[in-house]
Amino acid sequence: MSNWIEIAALDDIPRLGSRVVKTDTMNVAVFRTRDDQVFALKDECPHKQGPLSQGIVSGTTVTCPLHNWKIDLDSGCATGPDEGCTNVYPVKVEGGKIYLGLKTDEAAA
């Protein structure tokens, strides 16, 4: 079952930036676009597990810092000729707070 966990205020993430959310089992990268949309992906590039949270965000994509794959934030999939996807997690913003939707077993060990 999945539940919404408050993780941070929207302003804790810079525009066109990201934060890493550490759960007991993995890292999630939470991104904020220029127009305040928020997306959450597993912090692992489909190529060689590069930390997507450390990439440059533009539009609704992030460029992986290790070998420049461009990942679509909405689908979690690589764009262009590259192929592969990473997990996408539900997020929402309410009252200036960001909530991440994780299944119980994803949040805890």
Binding site: I5, R19, V21, T23, A107
Partner: peptide, 8 residues
């Protein structure tokens, strides 16, 4: 600083 969460 990462944001740390654990199961509720």
């Amino acid at each position: 600083q990462p944001i740390e969460i654990t199961a509720a």
